[in-house]
Design a protein around this nucleic acid. Structure first.
Lengths: 283, 283
DNA sequence: GATCATTACGAGCCGCGTAATCATT
DNA sequence: AATGATTACGCGGCTCGTAATGATC
Protein backbone atom coordinates (compact mmCIF):
# COMPACT_ATOMS: atom_id res chain seq x y z
CA UNK A 1 0.00 0.00 0.00
CA UNK A 2 1.02 3.57 -0.38
CA UNK A 3 -0.68 6.16 1.81
CA UNK A 4 -2.64 7.60 -1.06
CA UNK A 5 -3.25 11.33 -0.46
CA UNK A 6 -6.93 10.72 -1.10
CA UNK A 7 -6.96 8.34 1.82
CA UNK A 8 -5.15 10.84 3.98
CA UNK A 9 -7.63 13.52 3.04
CA UNK A 10 -10.48 11.21 3.96
CA UNK A 11 -8.81 10.29 7.23
CA UNK A 12 -8.28 13.93 8.15
CA UNK A 13 -11.88 14.76 7.33
CA UNK A 14 -13.23 11.85 9.35
CA UNK A 15 -11.12 12.87 12.32
CA UNK A 16 -12.33 16.46 12.01
CA UNK A 17 -16.03 15.78 11.74
CA UNK A 18 -15.83 12.71 13.97
CA UNK A 19 -18.07 10.69 11.71
CA UNK A 20 -17.59 8.43 8.73
CA UNK A 21 -21.01 9.30 7.31
CA UNK A 22 -20.55 13.07 7.55
CA UNK A 23 -17.09 12.84 6.06
CA UNK A 24 -18.53 10.84 3.18
CA UNK A 25 -21.17 13.51 2.53
CA UNK A 26 -18.58 16.27 2.70
CA UNK A 27 -16.21 14.53 0.33
CA UNK A 28 -18.81 13.20 -2.08
CA UNK A 29 -18.12 9.55 -1.29
CA UNK A 30 -20.29 6.81 0.12
CA UNK A 31 -19.85 5.65 3.73
CA UNK A 32 -18.44 2.49 2.31
CA UNK A 33 -15.67 4.25 0.44
CA UNK A 34 -14.72 6.24 3.52
CA UNK A 35 -14.63 3.10 5.59
CA UNK A 36 -12.43 1.44 2.99
CA UNK A 37 -10.06 4.41 2.91
CA UNK A 38 -9.53 4.28 6.63
CA UNK A 39 -9.26 0.52 6.57
CA UNK A 40 -6.64 0.73 3.82
CA UNK A 41 -4.53 3.13 5.88
CA UNK A 42 -4.89 1.02 8.99
CA UNK A 43 -3.97 -2.20 7.25
CA UNK A 44 -1.09 -0.47 5.49
CA UNK A 45 0.34 0.91 8.72
CA UNK A 46 -0.64 -2.08 10.79
CA UNK A 47 -2.29 -0.02 13.49
CA UNK A 48 -5.69 1.30 14.44
CA UNK A 49 -5.91 4.98 13.63
CA UNK A 50 -9.42 5.72 14.79
CA UNK A 51 -11.65 4.52 17.56
CA UNK A 52 -15.26 4.05 16.44
CA UNK A 53 -18.34 5.10 18.37
CA UNK A 54 -17.41 7.65 19.25
CA UNK A 55 -15.03 8.36 16.37
CA UNK A 56 -11.77 9.65 17.78
CA UNK A 57 -8.13 9.30 16.70
CA UNK A 58 -5.96 6.83 18.53
CA UNK A 59 -2.48 7.84 19.62
CA UNK A 60 -1.09 6.66 16.30
CA UNK A 61 -3.93 8.46 14.58
CA UNK A 62 -3.01 11.73 16.29
CA UNK A 63 0.52 11.37 15.01
CA UNK A 64 -0.64 10.63 11.51
CA UNK A 65 -3.02 13.59 11.60
CA UNK A 66 -0.18 16.04 12.11
CA UNK A 67 1.80 14.55 9.27
CA UNK A 68 -1.24 14.30 7.03
CA UNK A 69 -2.11 17.96 7.47
CA UNK A 70 1.41 18.98 6.57
CA UNK A 71 1.52 16.63 3.59
CA UNK A 72 -1.82 17.71 2.16
CA UNK A 73 -0.94 21.36 2.61
CA UNK A 74 2.36 20.89 0.87
CA UNK A 75 0.71 18.98 -1.92
CA UNK A 76 -1.74 21.82 -2.54
CA UNK A 77 1.09 24.25 -2.25
CA UNK A 78 3.11 22.41 -4.86
CA UNK A 79 0.25 22.34 -7.32
CA UNK A 80 -0.51 26.03 -6.84
CA UNK A 81 3.14 26.94 -7.11
CA UNK A 82 3.64 25.16 -10.39
CA UNK A 83 0.41 26.16 -12.12
CA UNK A 84 0.97 29.76 -11.06
CA UNK A 85 4.39 29.71 -12.62
CA UNK A 86 2.89 28.32 -15.81
CA UNK A 87 -0.02 30.76 -15.89
CA UNK A 88 2.18 33.82 -15.86
CA UNK A 89 1.41 37.11 -14.11
CA UNK A 90 -2.30 37.58 -13.46
CA UNK A 91 -4.08 40.82 -14.20
CA UNK A 92 -5.43 41.13 -10.71
CA UNK A 93 -3.61 40.86 -7.46
CA UNK A 94 -5.35 39.35 -4.46
CA UNK A 95 -3.44 40.28 -1.37
CA UNK A 96 -3.97 38.68 2.02
CA UNK A 97 -2.96 40.46 5.19
CA UNK A 98 -3.18 40.08 8.92
CA UNK A 99 -4.98 43.01 10.60
CA UNK A 100 -1.89 44.84 11.83
CA UNK A 101 -0.07 44.28 8.55
CA UNK A 102 -3.12 45.63 6.76
CA UNK A 103 -3.04 48.91 8.62
CA UNK A 104 0.72 49.31 8.89
CA UNK A 105 2.16 47.87 5.68
CA UNK A 106 -0.53 47.30 3.07
CA UNK A 107 -0.99 50.94 2.00
CA UNK A 108 2.66 51.44 1.17
CA UNK A 109 2.96 48.01 -0.42
CA UNK A 110 -0.07 48.53 -2.65
CA UNK A 111 1.17 51.99 -3.61
CA UNK A 112 4.45 50.45 -4.71
CA UNK A 113 2.64 47.75 -6.66
CA UNK A 114 0.39 50.23 -8.43
CA UNK A 115 3.34 52.39 -9.29
CA UNK A 116 5.16 49.42 -10.78
CA UNK A 117 2.17 47.93 -12.61
CA UNK A 118 -0.24 50.77 -13.38
CA UNK A 119 -3.12 48.66 -14.66
CA UNK A 120 -3.37 46.41 -11.65
CA UNK A 121 -6.65 45.43 -10.04
CA UNK A 122 -5.93 44.87 -6.36
CA UNK A 123 -8.06 43.15 -3.74
CA UNK A 124 -7.06 43.02 -0.09
CA UNK A 125 -8.41 40.28 2.14
CA UNK A 126 -7.80 40.33 5.88
CA UNK A 127 -7.48 37.10 7.82
CA UNK A 128 -5.38 35.50 10.51
CA UNK A 129 -1.77 34.50 9.94
CA UNK A 130 -2.18 30.84 9.12
CA UNK A 131 -5.14 31.49 6.85
CA UNK A 132 -3.11 34.01 4.89
CA UNK A 133 -0.11 31.69 4.65
CA UNK A 134 -2.28 28.79 3.53
CA UNK A 135 -4.13 31.02 1.11
CA UNK A 136 -0.92 32.12 -0.54
CA UNK A 137 0.37 28.56 -0.60
CA UNK A 138 -2.74 27.14 -2.22
CA UNK A 139 -3.13 29.92 -4.75
CA UNK A 140 -6.22 31.61 -3.32
CA UNK A 141 -4.03 34.66 -2.69
CA UNK A 142 -1.27 36.03 -4.88
CA UNK A 143 0.69 37.39 -1.95
CA UNK A 144 0.38 37.86 1.77
CA UNK A 145 1.57 40.31 4.36
CA UNK A 146 1.72 38.76 7.79
CA UNK A 147 3.00 40.18 11.04
CA UNK A 148 4.00 38.80 14.37
CA UNK A 149 6.42 39.08 17.21
CA UNK A 150 9.87 37.57 16.98
CA UNK A 151 13.44 37.98 18.09
CA UNK A 152 15.37 40.36 15.83
CA UNK A 153 16.39 38.58 12.65
CA UNK A 154 14.23 35.56 13.32
CA UNK A 155 11.50 34.51 10.95
CA UNK A 156 7.89 34.09 11.96
CA UNK A 157 6.64 30.61 12.69
CA UNK A 158 4.51 29.82 9.67
CA UNK A 159 3.08 26.55 8.38
CA UNK A 160 5.58 24.77 6.22
CA UNK A 161 4.60 25.45 2.64
CA UNK A 162 7.95 26.04 1.01
CA UNK A 163 6.99 29.61 0.21
CA UNK A 164 9.79 32.12 -0.13
CA UNK A 165 9.80 34.88 2.46
CA UNK A 166 10.60 37.68 0.10
CA UNK A 167 10.78 40.80 2.16
CA UNK A 168 10.20 41.89 5.69
CA UNK A 169 10.28 44.81 8.04
CA UNK A 170 11.14 44.94 11.70
CA UNK A 171 9.85 47.65 14.01
CA UNK A 172 10.10 48.28 17.75
CA UNK A 173 7.45 47.08 20.15
CA UNK A 174 5.80 49.02 22.92
CA UNK A 175 3.44 48.27 25.77
CA UNK A 176 0.05 49.92 25.56
CA UNK A 177 -0.87 51.36 28.97
CA UNK A 178 -3.91 53.26 30.17
CA UNK A 179 -3.44 56.94 31.03
CA UNK A 180 -2.33 57.36 34.57
CA UNK A 181 -0.86 53.88 34.82
CA UNK A 182 1.99 53.93 37.33
CA UNK A 183 4.46 52.84 34.66
CA UNK A 184 3.25 55.27 31.99
CA UNK A 185 5.84 57.90 31.26
CA UNK A 186 8.76 55.55 31.80
CA UNK A 187 11.38 55.61 29.07
CA UNK A 188 11.42 51.86 28.62
CA UNK A 189 10.02 48.73 30.16
CA UNK A 190 11.22 45.21 30.71
CA UNK A 191 8.68 42.47 30.19
CA UNK A 192 9.61 40.70 33.39
CA UNK A 193 8.45 43.74 35.34
CA UNK A 194 5.03 43.10 33.87
CA UNK A 195 4.48 39.38 34.40
CA UNK A 196 2.10 40.09 37.23
CA UNK A 197 0.23 42.78 35.33
CA UNK A 198 -3.21 42.24 33.84
CA UNK A 199 -2.86 41.48 30.15
CA UNK A 200 -5.39 41.36 27.38
CA UNK A 201 -5.32 38.23 25.26
CA UNK A 202 -6.07 39.41 21.72
CA UNK A 203 -4.98 36.68 19.30
CA UNK A 204 -6.71 38.40 16.40
CA UNK A 205 -4.53 41.49 16.75
CA UNK A 206 -1.27 40.71 18.46
CA UNK A 207 0.55 37.53 19.39
CA UNK A 208 -1.05 35.23 21.97
CA UNK A 209 0.36 35.63 25.47
CA UNK A 210 1.66 32.08 25.42
CA UNK A 211 3.79 32.88 22.38
CA UNK A 212 5.09 36.09 23.93
CA UNK A 213 5.92 34.23 27.11
CA UNK A 214 7.81 31.62 25.12
CA UNK A 215 9.79 34.21 23.20
CA UNK A 216 10.58 36.03 26.43
CA UNK A 217 11.37 32.73 28.15
CA UNK A 218 9.16 33.86 30.98
CA UNK A 219 6.14 32.35 32.63
CA UNK A 220 3.04 33.46 34.39
CA UNK A 221 1.48 35.88 31.94
CA UNK A 222 -2.18 35.82 32.79
CA UNK A 223 -4.96 37.10 30.60
CA UNK A 224 -7.42 39.34 32.42
CA UNK A 225 -9.64 39.55 29.38
CA UNK A 226 -9.93 37.95 26.00
CA UNK A 227 -10.64 40.12 22.96
CA UNK A 228 -11.66 38.23 19.86
CA UNK A 229 -11.91 41.17 17.50
CA UNK A 230 -9.27 41.84 14.90
CA UNK A 231 -9.17 45.63 14.94
CA UNK A 232 -6.62 47.63 16.85
CA UNK A 233 -9.07 50.36 17.88
CA UNK A 234 -11.20 48.05 19.96
CA UNK A 235 -8.18 46.67 21.72
CA UNK A 236 -6.77 50.12 22.44
CA UNK A 237 -10.10 51.21 23.86
CA UNK A 238 -10.02 48.31 26.31
CA UNK A 239 -6.48 49.17 27.29
CA UNK A 240 -7.42 52.83 27.79
CA UNK A 241 -10.32 51.76 29.97
CA UNK A 242 -7.85 49.97 32.19
CA UNK A 243 -8.87 46.40 31.45
CA UNK A 244 -5.34 45.31 30.79
CA UNK A 245 -2.12 45.80 28.83
CA UNK A 246 -1.17 44.81 25.31
CA UNK A 247 2.10 44.46 23.43
CA UNK A 248 1.91 46.23 20.08
CA UNK A 249 4.17 47.85 17.49
CA UNK A 250 5.20 51.28 18.74
CA UNK A 251 3.84 52.91 15.59
CA UNK A 252 0.21 52.09 16.26
CA UNK A 253 0.49 53.64 19.70
CA UNK A 254 1.71 56.93 18.22
CA UNK A 255 4.04 57.61 21.09
CA UNK A 256 1.48 56.82 23.74
CA UNK A 257 3.03 53.50 24.73
CA UNK A 258 6.22 52.73 26.56
CA UNK A 259 8.98 51.13 24.54
CA UNK A 260 9.90 47.53 25.29
CA UNK A 261 13.61 47.27 25.92
CA UNK A 262 14.03 43.77 27.33
CA UNK A 263 13.82 41.09 26.07
CA UNK A 264 14.81 42.16 22.62
CA UNK A 265 11.75 41.47 20.56
CA UNK A 266 10.50 43.21 17.46
CA UNK A 267 7.32 43.44 15.50
CA UNK A 268 8.10 41.69 12.26
CA UNK A 269 6.25 41.85 8.97
CA UNK A 270 6.90 39.34 6.22
CA UNK A 271 5.84 39.29 2.60
CA UNK A 272 4.83 35.92 1.26
CA UNK A 273 5.06 35.94 -2.48
CA UNK A 274 2.94 33.48 -4.35
CA UNK A 275 2.68 34.64 -7.95
CA UNK A 276 5.18 36.81 -9.73
CA UNK A 277 2.81 39.72 -9.37
CA UNK A 278 3.66 39.67 -5.67
CA UNK A 279 7.14 40.83 -6.62
CA UNK A 280 5.71 44.26 -7.35
CA UNK A 281 5.00 44.69 -3.65
CA UNK A 282 7.58 46.38 -1.48
CA UNK A 283 7.60 47.18 2.16
CA UNK B 1 -5.45 13.67 -11.62
CA UNK B 2 -3.95 13.71 -8.20
CA UNK B 3 -0.17 14.00 -8.00
CA UNK B 4 0.24 10.43 -6.88
CA UNK B 5 3.31 10.12 -4.63
CA UNK B 6 4.52 7.30 -6.87
CA UNK B 7 4.59 9.74 -9.75
CA UNK B 8 6.43 12.28 -7.67
CA UNK B 9 8.96 9.68 -6.66
CA UNK B 10 9.47 8.74 -10.27
CA UNK B 11 9.79 12.38 -11.26
CA UNK B 12 12.37 13.06 -8.56
CA UNK B 13 14.36 10.02 -9.60
CA UNK B 14 14.30 10.94 -13.28
CA UNK B 15 15.48 14.45 -12.45
CA UNK B 16 18.26 13.06 -10.30
CA UNK B 17 19.64 10.51 -12.71
CA UNK B 18 18.76 12.63 -15.75
CA UNK B 19 17.41 9.67 -17.65
CA UNK B 20 14.05 7.95 -18.00
CA UNK B 21 15.64 4.57 -18.66
CA UNK B 22 17.97 4.67 -15.67
CA UNK B 23 15.18 5.85 -13.41
CA UNK B 24 13.06 2.94 -14.64
CA UNK B 25 15.83 0.48 -13.80
CA UNK B 26 16.35 2.01 -10.38
CA UNK B 27 12.66 1.95 -9.52
CA UNK B 28 11.86 -1.40 -11.04
CA UNK B 29 9.58 0.00 -13.73
CA UNK B 30 9.73 -0.09 -17.49
CA UNK B 31 10.71 3.03 -19.45
CA UNK B 32 7.14 3.19 -20.55
CA UNK B 33 5.78 3.44 -17.04
CA UNK B 34 8.27 6.16 -16.17
CA UNK B 35 7.32 8.11 -19.25
CA UNK B 36 3.66 7.76 -18.35
CA UNK B 37 4.29 8.94 -14.80
CA UNK B 38 5.96 12.10 -15.99
CA UNK B 39 3.34 12.59 -18.66
CA UNK B 40 0.59 12.22 -16.05
CA UNK B 41 2.15 14.88 -13.87
CA UNK B 42 2.68 17.21 -16.79
CA UNK B 43 -0.86 16.83 -18.09
CA UNK B 44 -2.22 17.20 -14.57
CA UNK B 45 -0.32 20.42 -13.92
CA UNK B 46 -0.62 21.64 -17.48
CA UNK B 47 3.10 22.37 -17.82
CA UNK B 48 6.24 20.74 -19.02
CA UNK B 49 8.33 19.62 -16.06
CA UNK B 50 11.31 18.12 -17.85
CA UNK B 51 13.22 18.85 -20.98
CA UNK B 52 14.22 15.71 -22.87
CA UNK B 53 17.54 15.00 -24.45
CA UNK B 54 19.20 16.06 -22.37
CA UNK B 55 16.83 15.38 -19.49
CA UNK B 56 16.71 18.44 -17.26
CA UNK B 57 13.99 20.04 -15.15
CA UNK B 58 12.23 23.11 -16.51
CA UNK B 59 11.63 26.07 -14.24
CA UNK B 60 8.31 24.61 -13.17
CA UNK B 61 10.05 21.28 -12.70
CA UNK B 62 12.60 22.83 -10.38
CA UNK B 63 9.80 24.20 -8.26
CA UNK B 64 8.02 20.88 -8.16
CA UNK B 65 11.25 19.10 -7.25
CA UNK B 66 11.61 21.09 -4.04
CA UNK B 67 8.04 20.38 -3.04
CA UNK B 68 8.26 16.74 -4.05
CA UNK B 69 11.35 16.13 -1.94
CA UNK B 70 9.64 17.63 1.08
CA UNK B 71 6.44 15.72 0.47
CA UNK B 72 8.13 12.35 -0.01
CA UNK B 73 10.28 12.87 3.06
CA UNK B 74 7.28 13.78 5.14
CA UNK B 75 5.39 10.78 3.80
CA UNK B 76 8.21 8.43 4.83
CA UNK B 77 8.44 10.23 8.12
CA UNK B 78 4.74 9.77 8.77
CA UNK B 79 4.87 6.06 8.05
CA UNK B 80 7.94 5.54 10.23
CA UNK B 81 6.46 7.60 13.01
CA UNK B 82 3.25 5.63 13.15
CA UNK B 83 4.67 2.14 12.77
CA UNK B 84 7.29 2.92 15.39
CA UNK B 85 4.60 3.95 17.81
CA UNK B 86 2.75 0.72 17.10
CA UNK B 87 5.82 -1.48 17.36
CA UNK B 88 6.68 -0.35 20.85
CA UNK B 89 10.19 0.10 22.27
CA UNK B 90 12.82 -1.88 20.32
CA UNK B 91 15.48 -3.92 22.05
CA UNK B 92 18.29 -2.20 20.24
CA UNK B 93 18.92 1.49 19.89
CA UNK B 94 20.50 2.81 16.71
CA UNK B 95 21.75 6.28 17.34
CA UNK B 96 22.84 8.68 14.63
CA UNK B 97 25.18 11.55 15.39
CA UNK B 98 27.08 14.29 13.64
CA UNK B 99 30.83 14.10 14.25
CA UNK B 100 31.04 16.81 16.90
CA UNK B 101 27.93 15.56 18.64
CA UNK B 102 29.47 12.09 18.60
CA UNK B 103 32.55 13.21 20.48
CA UNK B 104 30.94 15.77 22.76
CA UNK B 105 27.52 14.41 23.60
CA UNK B 106 27.18 10.77 22.64
CA UNK B 107 29.20 9.26 25.50
CA UNK B 108 27.11 10.92 28.20
CA UNK B 109 23.88 10.27 26.34
CA UNK B 110 24.63 6.60 25.87
CA UNK B 111 25.68 6.28 29.50
CA UNK B 112 22.33 7.71 30.55
CA UNK B 113 20.50 5.36 28.22
CA UNK B 114 22.37 2.29 29.48
CA UNK B 115 21.70 3.30 33.05
CA UNK B 116 17.99 3.65 32.36
CA UNK B 117 17.65 0.52 30.25
CA UNK B 118 20.36 -1.91 31.34
CA UNK B 119 19.82 -4.52 28.62
CA UNK B 120 20.15 -2.16 25.70
CA UNK B 121 22.11 -2.93 22.57
CA UNK B 122 23.36 0.40 21.24
CA UNK B 123 24.80 1.21 17.81
CA UNK B 124 26.18 4.63 16.96
CA UNK B 125 26.31 5.74 13.35
CA UNK B 126 28.05 8.98 12.37
CA UNK B 127 26.83 11.02 9.42
CA UNK B 128 26.12 14.58 8.40
CA UNK B 129 23.24 16.54 9.83
CA UNK B 130 20.65 16.06 7.15
CA UNK B 131 21.42 12.37 6.83
CA UNK B 132 20.90 11.91 10.55
CA UNK B 133 17.67 13.90 10.52
CA UNK B 134 16.34 11.97 7.55
CA UNK B 135 17.46 8.69 9.10
CA UNK B 136 15.55 9.39 12.27
CA UNK B 137 12.53 10.56 10.33
CA UNK B 138 12.39 7.49 8.15
CA UNK B 139 13.02 5.04 10.95
CA UNK B 140 16.53 3.94 9.99
CA UNK B 141 17.69 5.49 13.26
CA UNK B 142 15.93 5.47 16.61
CA UNK B 143 17.35 8.79 17.65
CA UNK B 144 19.84 11.38 16.48
CA UNK B 145 22.21 13.85 18.06
CA UNK B 146 22.98 16.73 15.74
CA UNK B 147 24.98 19.85 16.35
CA UNK B 148 25.36 23.18 14.68
CA UNK B 149 25.78 26.87 15.20
CA UNK B 150 22.83 29.06 16.04
CA UNK B 151 21.79 32.16 17.91
CA UNK B 152 21.06 31.41 21.59
CA UNK B 153 17.64 29.85 21.93
CA UNK B 154 17.21 29.30 18.21
CA UNK B 155 16.71 25.86 16.78
CA UNK B 156 18.91 24.35 14.12
CA UNK B 157 17.73 24.45 10.54
CA UNK B 158 16.73 20.88 9.85
CA UNK B 159 14.68 19.34 7.07
CA UNK B 160 11.00 19.51 7.88
CA UNK B 161 10.03 16.07 9.15
CA UNK B 162 7.73 16.96 12.02
CA UNK B 163 10.11 15.33 14.47
CA UNK B 164 10.08 16.59 18.02
CA UNK B 165 13.28 18.26 19.17
CA UNK B 166 13.40 16.64 22.53
CA UNK B 167 16.44 18.01 24.25
CA UNK B 168 19.36 20.21 23.52
CA UNK B 169 22.46 21.76 24.91
CA UNK B 170 24.07 25.06 24.18
CA UNK B 171 27.75 25.71 24.71
CA UNK B 172 30.06 28.65 24.01
CA UNK B 173 32.01 28.89 20.78
CA UNK B 174 35.64 29.74 20.34
CA UNK B 175 37.98 30.49 17.49
CA UNK B 176 40.75 27.98 16.95
CA UNK B 177 44.02 29.83 16.33
CA UNK B 178 47.55 28.57 15.68
CA UNK B 179 50.12 29.14 18.43
CA UNK B 180 51.72 32.51 18.11
CA UNK B 181 48.85 34.01 16.19
CA UNK B 182 48.68 37.76 16.90
CA UNK B 183 45.19 37.40 18.36
CA UNK B 184 45.96 34.34 20.50
CA UNK B 185 45.87 35.17 24.16
CA UNK B 186 43.08 37.70 23.78
CA UNK B 187 40.23 37.28 26.24
CA UNK B 188 37.56 37.39 23.59
CA UNK B 189 37.12 38.00 19.88
CA UNK B 190 34.51 39.56 17.70
CA UNK B 191 33.82 37.82 14.42
CA UNK B 192 33.92 41.04 12.44
CA UNK B 193 37.56 41.46 13.43
CA UNK B 194 38.22 38.22 11.58
CA UNK B 195 36.39 38.69 8.29
CA UNK B 196 39.66 39.22 6.52
CA UNK B 197 41.37 36.29 8.18
CA UNK B 198 42.06 33.01 6.42
CA UNK B 199 39.36 30.51 7.35
CA UNK B 200 39.14 26.80 6.86
CA UNK B 201 35.93 25.56 5.29
CA UNK B 202 35.16 22.27 7.01
CA UNK B 203 31.53 21.41 6.39
CA UNK B 204 31.98 17.92 7.78
CA UNK B 205 32.99 19.24 11.18
CA UNK B 206 31.68 22.72 11.79
CA UNK B 207 29.14 24.92 10.04
CA UNK B 208 29.93 26.11 6.52
CA UNK B 209 31.33 29.63 6.32
CA UNK B 210 28.31 30.79 4.38
CA UNK B 211 26.03 29.77 7.23
CA UNK B 212 28.25 31.43 9.80
CA UNK B 213 28.32 34.59 7.73
CA UNK B 214 24.54 34.57 7.51
CA UNK B 215 24.12 34.11 11.24
CA UNK B 216 26.63 36.86 11.91
CA UNK B 217 25.00 39.03 9.24
CA UNK B 218 28.45 39.65 7.87
CA UNK B 219 30.00 39.14 4.49
CA UNK B 220 33.34 38.39 3.01
CA UNK B 221 34.41 35.27 4.84
CA UNK B 222 36.81 33.56 2.51
CA UNK B 223 37.92 29.98 2.72
CA UNK B 224 41.67 29.56 2.43
CA UNK B 225 41.37 25.79 2.44
CA UNK B 226 38.64 23.21 2.25
CA UNK B 227 38.78 20.22 4.61
CA UNK B 228 36.43 17.42 3.72
CA UNK B 229 37.16 15.14 6.64
CA UNK B 230 34.76 14.78 9.53
CA UNK B 231 37.18 14.47 12.43
CA UNK B 232 38.14 17.35 14.65
CA UNK B 233 41.75 16.27 15.00
CA UNK B 234 42.54 16.74 11.36
CA UNK B 235 41.00 20.14 11.33
CA UNK B 236 42.85 21.23 14.46
CA UNK B 237 46.13 20.07 12.96
CA UNK B 238 45.54 22.29 9.94
CA UNK B 239 44.73 25.21 12.19
CA UNK B 240 47.85 24.60 14.28
CA UNK B 241 49.92 24.52 11.10
CA UNK B 242 48.63 27.98 10.31
CA UNK B 243 46.48 27.13 7.32
CA UNK B 244 43.52 29.03 8.66
CA UNK B 245 41.04 29.53 11.48
CA UNK B 246 37.97 27.57 12.50
CA UNK B 247 34.97 28.27 14.70
CA UNK B 248 34.40 25.41 17.12
CA UNK B 249 32.83 24.68 20.49
CA UNK B 250 35.16 25.94 23.21
CA UNK B 251 35.22 22.49 24.83
CA UNK B 252 37.02 20.77 21.98
CA UNK B 253 39.73 23.41 22.08
CA UNK B 254 40.39 22.72 25.77
CA UNK B 255 41.14 26.32 26.55
CA UNK B 256 43.44 26.79 23.60
CA UNK B 257 41.02 28.88 21.58
CA UNK B 258 39.79 32.39 22.10
CA UNK B 259 36.17 32.81 23.13
CA UNK B 260 33.77 34.33 20.64
CA UNK B 261 31.94 37.21 22.25
CA UNK B 262 30.23 38.95 19.35
CA UNK B 263 27.94 38.14 17.63
CA UNK B 264 26.23 36.01 20.25
CA UNK B 265 26.30 32.56 18.76
CA UNK B 266 26.40 29.22 20.48
CA UNK B 267 27.20 25.66 19.62
CA UNK B 268 23.87 23.90 19.86
CA UNK B 269 23.19 20.19 20.15
CA UNK B 270 19.74 18.78 19.59
CA UNK B 271 18.32 15.36 20.27
CA UNK B 272 15.94 14.05 17.65
CA UNK B 273 13.80 11.35 19.14
CA UNK B 274 12.30 8.84 16.83
CA UNK B 275 11.26 5.84 18.84
CA UNK B 276 10.38 5.87 22.50
CA UNK B 277 13.72 4.29 23.22
CA UNK B 278 15.25 7.63 22.35
CA UNK B 279 13.63 9.03 25.47
CA UNK B 280 16.21 7.19 27.53
CA UNK B 281 18.89 9.46 26.13
CA UNK B 282 19.79 12.60 28.04
CA UNK B 283 22.27 15.29 27.33
C1' DG C 1 -35.08 -0.18 16.28
C1' DA C 2 -32.45 3.46 14.42
C1' DT C 3 -28.09 5.04 13.32
C1' DC C 4 -23.75 4.17 11.86
C1' DA C 5 -19.68 1.39 10.49
C1' DT C 6 -18.14 -2.89 8.05
C1' DT C 7 -18.15 -6.55 4.67
C1' DA C 8 -19.33 -8.68 0.12
C1' DC C 9 -19.24 -8.22 -4.46
C1' DG C 10 -19.38 -6.50 -9.10
C1' DA C 11 -18.37 -2.69 -12.48
C1' DG C 12 -15.24 0.51 -14.32
C1' DC C 13 -11.11 2.91 -14.38
C1' DC C 14 -6.29 3.35 -14.07
C1' DG C 15 -1.66 2.15 -14.06
C1' DC C 16 1.61 -1.14 -15.73
C1' DG C 17 3.96 -4.06 -19.20
C1' DT C 18 4.68 -5.53 -24.05
C1' DA C 19 5.64 -3.96 -28.26
C1' DA C 20 5.70 -0.87 -31.94
C1' DT C 21 6.84 3.99 -33.26
C1' DC C 22 9.22 8.15 -33.18
C1' DA C 23 13.23 11.15 -32.24
C1' DT C 24 17.91 12.29 -31.45
C1' DT C 25 22.80 11.62 -31.65
C1' DA D 1 22.34 2.32 -36.55
C1' DA D 2 21.78 2.67 -31.71
C1' DT D 3 20.09 4.61 -27.79
C1' DG D 4 16.30 6.49 -25.59
C1' DA D 5 11.57 8.58 -25.14
C1' DT D 6 6.67 8.18 -26.62
C1' DT D 7 2.43 5.97 -28.12
C1' DA D 8 -0.82 1.95 -28.70
C1' DC D 9 -3.16 -1.40 -26.48
C1' DG D 10 -4.62 -5.11 -23.44
C1' DC D 11 -4.39 -7.26 -18.97
C1' DG D 12 -4.81 -6.94 -14.01
C1' DG D 13 -5.53 -4.68 -9.90
C1' DC D 14 -7.50 -1.05 -7.36
C1' DT D 15 -11.21 1.82 -5.93
C1' DC D 16 -15.70 3.00 -5.97
C1' DG D 17 -20.82 2.18 -5.41
C1' DT D 18 -24.68 -0.96 -4.23
C1' DA D 19 -26.42 -3.79 -0.99
C1' DA D 20 -26.36 -6.78 2.81
C1' DT D 21 -24.51 -7.55 7.44
C1' DG D 22 -22.97 -6.30 11.88
C1' DA D 23 -22.49 -3.35 15.91
C1' DT D 24 -23.78 0.13 19.18
C1' DC D 25 -26.68 3.46 21.38
Amino acid sequence: MRMDPRFLRTFVTVARVESFSDAARELGYTQSAVSQHVAALESDLGTALLQRRPVAPTEAGERLLEHAHAILLRLDSARADVVRLAAGPPGRLTLGATPLAASLSVPAAVAAACAALPRLDVTVRVADRDTVAIGVATGALDAGLVDGIAAPGDGLRLPDTGLPVAAFAEAPLAVALPDGHPLAGRAGLRLEDLVDARWIEAPGVTAPLAEIAMLARAEGFRAALRYEGSDVGGLLALVAAGHGLALLPARVLAGAGVALVEPRLVHRTELLRGSEAGAALRL
